[in-house]
Design a protein around this nucleic acid. Structure first.
Length: 501
RNA sequence: GGGUCGUUAGCUCAGCCGGUAGAGCAGCGGACUUUUAAUCCGUUGGUCGCCAGUUCGAUCCUGGCACGACCUACCA
């Protein structure tokens, strides 16, 4: 390590300089970064196993344990000290005194800093207030922390820093640790739910030569060796349905999608999507399936199907409401008559009056959907399936048998947000080809989110896609619901931010 | 993209009518053998986001820029 080769460090301060000096001193006598200490317990295990024992029981049958973790609190009192050590499972208090470690170890401890990573061996005991603690006999500094931690009581409050330096947020904020623990369990519960039902988990390409499966602007990149344009996927849908053609009749994928669009409290450019497909089922089956899955996941992860979101309660155990687009509009805005909602001229005038963006080529269904999006979507707090999506905005969904202008499709709204989108799949290759043509026309006309014509996908359909039901669920938004998080950035470990400095 | 608000010590935050800054925590030194956000005494630490302008003088007023948060629009 030569000073000359190191990049200039701009944020050096007195505290860091002092800690660096301590590290330099340690280097002179010891290995400053030893990797020989092995713990034999996590802190939470110690509480589980031994907290029920009394002070006397612990003294009669001494238990020797080794733990390791980051020192987050420190209280020095002359010839004895207390320190709180945090590991992945929780915290435990160390008692360090000249009597049990000898004076030199305790003296060294006094120079350890908050944030340092320690390994400790000692005997379990209870303090006079009854707190399970470790009476330390051996103490080692495992990793010197050069930078001071955020304020020990308030933790890290600055939102930007919480996102940019998530590790600091995780060290100091138990709520943050809990959110990501729940996120992990949600994904695990979903995976188990599918595996139990004989679904096969698959991974399909993240880089597409033709971005498809959704209406969104893609990120584009380039493959040098092949000298070809590639797009980060906006959805896995068309690949998953190719697998169903191939005979994988129940498949699911939990993975990232990338959309080159706005960033908000509900949108991150890369987000996690569950998509699943099951042959020989339809969209009504999916709605039942979704109700069961969400109730199962909530029960499994939170232990209850009654979740609290931003001060209101949501019950995931009862069947969700099912409303058509116009029924939903009328439920919240009873002044709209059925005649008005089916009158193209009325809808256009109304949308213009409300200053709502509309596509002039839209039919009645598209116009109804625009009105719904603007006036009603955000009011759907209770879990609600919206059905009867117009075919013109559903280029991959099967037409309804009795009304070809609408599709066998639903979207699920909870807490005013779209959580899921599912439908009976369009498996008529000729209809699909015609719909791609329409999308391609729209794209030529300037709609940057319209779909490309995917000839290989049509070829796959021509081999025969069995009647199939398929659905996508936004995992981040589901985790927001289950962790009562107001922003998607709170459930993504490293949300997208502008570049620093 | 539009609007509102914010940026002061490593962290959490004060800072009145414009006179170049304070507290707590953390750090350093000292006291203290059951503390628990330990306590007590002493003490170091600041380009007040950046750049202009107004002014004798700007953390404070004005303009611009950067970054962020929230709301809003497109999208999941």
């Amino acid at each position: 390590m030569t000073q000359e080769n190191q990049p200039a460090v701009h944020d050096e301060n007195q505290i860091i300089a002092e800690r660096r000096a301590k590290l330099t001193e340690i280097r002179q006598t010891n290995n400053a970064f030893p990797n020989t200490f092995r713990r034999d317990h996590l802190t939470s295990e110690l509480f589980k196993q031994f907290n029920a024992l009394s002070k006397e029981q612990l003294e009669e049958q001494p238990t020797i344990v080794k733990i390791a973790g980051r020192m987050v609190l420190k209280r020095v009192m002359g010839k004895a000290s207390f320190a709180t050590i945090q590991d992945m499972s929780g915290r435990i208090q160390l008692y360090i005194s000249n009597d049990h470690t000898g004076e030199p170890v305790h003296a060294a401890f006094k120079h350890y800093d908050l944030g340092d990573i320690l390994g400790a061996q000692g005997t379990l005991f209870k303090t006079k207030t009854g707190e399970l603690s470790i009476r330390v006999t051996d103490l080692q500094l495992l990793t010197k922390s050069l930078r001071p931690l955020p304020e020990k009581f308030h933790g890290l409050a600055d939102q930007e820093q919480k996102y940019r330096q998530r590790y600091l947020d995780l060290i100091t904020n138990e709520e943050t640790r809990k959110v990501f623990s729940i996120r992990s369990k949600v994904v695990q519960a979903i995976r188990e739910f599918f595996v139990e039902r004989d679904y096969l988990e698959v991974e399909t390409p993240m880089m597409h030569s033709i971005p498809g499966g959704a209406s969104a602007r893609p990120f584009s990149t380039h493959h040098n060796a092949l000298d070809m344009a590639l797009f980060l996927r906006i959805a896995p849908e068309l690949y998953l349905k190719r697998l169903v053609v191939g005979g994988m009749e129940k498949v699911f994928e939990i993975n990232r999608n990338f959309r080159n669009e706005g960033i908000s409290t509900r949108h991150n450019p890369e987000f996690t999507m569950l998509e699943f497909y099951e042959a020989y089922q339809d969209f009504t089956y999916l709605m039942d399936f979704t109700e069961q899955m969400l109730a199962h996941v909530a029960k499994q992860v939170l232990g209850t199907t009654h979740i609290s979101y931003q001060g209101k309660t949501i019950d995931l155990s009862k069947p969700f409401m099912r409303l058509t687009i116009t029924q939903a509009i009328q439920k919240f805005h009873p002044d709209y008559t059925t005649e008005q909602l089916n009158d193209r001229n009325y809808l256009i005038k109304k949308l213009q009056a409300l200053n709502i963006h509309l596509n002039p080529n839209d039919g009645i269904g598209g116009l109804q959907l625009s009105l719904f999006d603007e006036t009603t979507e955000h009011l759907l707090f209770e879990p609600t399936f919206i059905v009867d999506y117009p075919a013109e905005v559903s280029p991959l969904a099967r037409r309804n048998d009795s009304n070809p202008d609408i599709t066998d499709r639903f979207e699920l709204y909870i807490a005013g947000r779209e959580i899921a989108n599912g439908f009976s799949e369009l498996n008529d290759p000729e209809d699909q080809a015609a719909r791609f043509q329409e999308q391609a026309k729209a794209k030529d006309a300037g709609d940057s989110e319209a779909m490309h014509y995917d000839a290989d996908y049509i070829r796959a359909l021509e081999y025969g896609l069995p009647p199939t039901a398929g659905e996508g669920i936004g995992i981040d938004r589901l985790v927001m619901l289950l962790t009562d998080s107001p922003s998607i950035r709170d459930v993504i470990l490293f949300p997208q931010l502008r570049q620093e400095d």
